[in-house]
């Protein structure tokens, strides 16, 4: 088996609202491997996004431990996590989260301005097939295009990990497939470890491995012997 890139030991995340405690994660042990494309599957509120946030250094676990390669993220300072995100992690979100006042190119430059070894913004946009729409503002683009800008922005720093939270959630099937194609292309071309959260069961078929979530815990892990190309997926 390939090298482990992420490892977690019994992580829990508790949200307290008044007197009610909500367990978003209730003891998750997990290992993710280098260059693997993993799909996290599960209904809303099952803890997928919380896990992704903790892996991406956006949030701290309430309990348990997390490692990125040999670095423990568990109690890392804010400053340390900022550097970790800046150097290693690329994010793709359901609602693209583009800065509306910046063009596609400038949105990507937001990353290339601060990353240690980025690719040119133009190259990243070429990779997602938007080389000709670089100077358009988000409002001038379709949802699929916006999401591809978001992916270009995520990969422009040449991240080791790409964390995607419902990347096709706001898209129709055809556009969604285009976005998935890009993700798989990146994964294969650069060997970027890719984690895709979805509650769309069809998408699991393109993954190396699928991890099922239920009530803040992993309910099942399954390896795909026969992966499908995104173009073969329909929903």
């Amino acid at each position: 088996m390939a090298d482990i890139i992420f490892r977690t030991e019994g992580i829990t995340k508790v949200y307290e609202t008044g007197e009610v405690k909500v367990y978003a994660l209730a003891g998750v042990d997990l290992a993710l491997y280098k260059s693997e494309l993993t799909v996290l599957l599960g209904p809303s509120g099952s803890g997928k996004s919380t896990l992704l946030n903790i892996l991406g250094g956006l949030d701290h676990a309430t309990d348990g431990r997390v490692w990125f390669e040999d670095t423990e993220l568990t109690d890392m300072s804010d400053r340390g996590l900022t550097k970790y995100r800046r150097d290693h992690v690329g994010f793709v979100f359901q609602f693209y989260n583009l800065v509306p006042s910046l063009t596609a190119r400038e949105n990507v430059q937001l990353v290339t301005d601060v990353a240690p070894d980025p690719m040119p913004a133009e190259e990243a946009l070429d990779l997602v097939g938007l080389g000709k729409r670089m100077d358009h503002f988000p409002s001038e683009m379709s949802g699929g295009e916006q999401q591809r800008v978001a992916i270009a922005r995520a990969i422009a720093k040449r991240p080791q990990i790409l964390l995607c939270d419902e990347p096709t959630g706001a898209l129709d099937s055809t556009t969604g497939v285009q976005v998935l194609e890009v993700l798989r292309d990146i994964n294969e071309r650069f060997g970027t470890t890719t984690v895709v959260i979805t509650h769309n069961a069809e998408i699991q078929r393109m993954a190396h491995r699928v991890i099922f979530f239920q009530d803040g815990k992993i309910s099942e892990t399954r390896e795909n012997k026969d992966r499908l190309a995104p173009s073969e997926i329909v929903w």
Binding site: R79, F91, F95, V114
Partner: peptide
């Protein structure tokens, strides 16, 4: 809010 979250996710520091 979400843009701030995004900038942070990308790796912009609190000071920036």
């Amino acid at each position: 809010r979400s843009e701030i979250g995004l900038l942070k996710a990308i790796g912009y520091s609190n000071t920036e």
